[in-house]
């Protein structure tokens, strides 16, 4: 397996002014590192404000990073809108949560799937571009007679298929999916999840799959990173993380998944809200909500390090209480 995407110490800070007019810095993403192999899926989970969507935008070069390097297919990703950046767009694409917002309401959907080919001057002529777009229509399971329809004439699931067709028409190596099925109904979401898995098999596209839904991420991801306040707190294979979480935050997230017929015993209910990233707590950012925090957690930020079974964890207690003790 070859590394497609390598992200090192990625950070993005925003200057903000708080209620009193005080200038502060908001660390949306604060030192994130991961790599992704060709044709594989890395899931990123976390609650709102944890920096998962910012990580997506930084990875694509849609936002300039404050710090860190991104290497994609061996060359650095920058946010300068130059020729290099435009060439990258052919190789990396994004799928957003709300397909209706991502599509142009006044353009037939077929035209929108052809548009990337037109922009990049690919295929010999309009006829060939249309053929290619129709081939993608077929690949995502859209009938050819929908080619001339407008987004409002399609169902939610069909619209997300159009978005996928448009993203894949350039044959990208990386697809960043930011909550791609959160806006879809259960029965349709299953269709789109299966489709995304089929498309990955067929085209060998790597997915950076961002979601708040642990069940969906487990379904699609080869590896999962859990983010809290701009940092990865645990990373590893989905079943290892979700069945035997090492980090107390992962444990709380898993515990918070509403599961019928489970009863309330042993459930972890965290106190309070996630802190404002502007007021990042000292030491481990999770310590004010952590049910197992010790004095050291307040002063010393834990580094993301390899733990017993090969996964990564950022918690002072992990080395002392390996995953086996939790299971």
């Amino acid at each position: 397996m070859t590394v497609l995407l390598d992200v090192r110490d990625l950070a993005r800070a925003y200057p903000v002014s708080t209620a009193g007019g005080v200038r502060r810095t908001l660390h949306a993403v604060d030192g994130v590192s991961f790599s992704l192999e060709r044709g594989r899926t890395l899931g990123i989970v976390g609650e709102s404000g944890c920096g998962k969507s910012t990580t997506a935008k930084l990875t694509l070069g849609l936002l300039p990073a404050t710090r860190g390097q991104i290497t994609f297919e061996g060359s650095p990703v920058t946010a300068e809108r130059d020729r290099h950046w435009r060439a990258l767009r052919r190789r990396m694409q994004i799928v957003h949560q709300d397909p209706l917002a991502a599509l142009d309401r006044r353009l037939p959907v077929g035209q929108q799937v052809m548009e990337p080919l037109v922009i990049h001057g690919l295929e010999a002529n309009a006829g060939a571009q249309r053929q290619k777009a129709l081939a993608l229509f077929d690949a995502v399971g859209l009938r050819p007679d929908l080619f001339e329809r407008f987004p409002h004439e399609l169902s939610g699931g069909q619209r997300q298929r159009v978005v996928l067709a448009r993203a894949l028409v350039l044959d990208p190596a990386l697809l960043v999916c930011d909550e791609p099925i959160s806006a879809l109904d259960v029965s349709v979401a299953a269709q789109v999840i299966n489709l995304m898995q089929d498309l990955q098999m067929r085209f060998g596209t790597a997915y950076l799959f961002i979601s708040h839904d642990l069940k969906v991420v487990r379904q699609v991801a080869d590896e999962v990173a859990v983010m809290y306040l701009g940092r990865i707190v645990e990373q590893g294979p989905p079943d290892a993380l979700f069945h035997a979480p090492a980090h107390p935050y992962t444990e709380a997230l898993v515990s918070a998944v509403p599961t019928p017929l489970r009863g309330t015993q042993g459930r972890i209910i965290l106190k309070g809200d996630p802190p404002n990233p502007v007021d990042r707590p000292s030491g481990c950012a999770f310590h004010p909500r952590c049910p197992r925090a010790v004095a050291r957690c307040r002063d010393e930020a834990p580094a993301l390090k390899r733990v017993a079974d090969g996964r990564l964890g950022a918690c002072h207690l992990v080395a002392d209480a390996p995953a086996a003790a939790v299971a």
Partner: peptide
């Protein structure tokens, strides 16, 4: 169909069984 279409956190990972068509 609704239950078969849901991904789960436990048990083996299996391909989801979607309900064909739309509401």
């Amino acid at each position: 169909g609704l239950l078969a279409a849901l991904p789960t956190l436990d048990g083996p990972r299996r391909r989801l069984t979607p309900i064909p068509g739309t509401v």
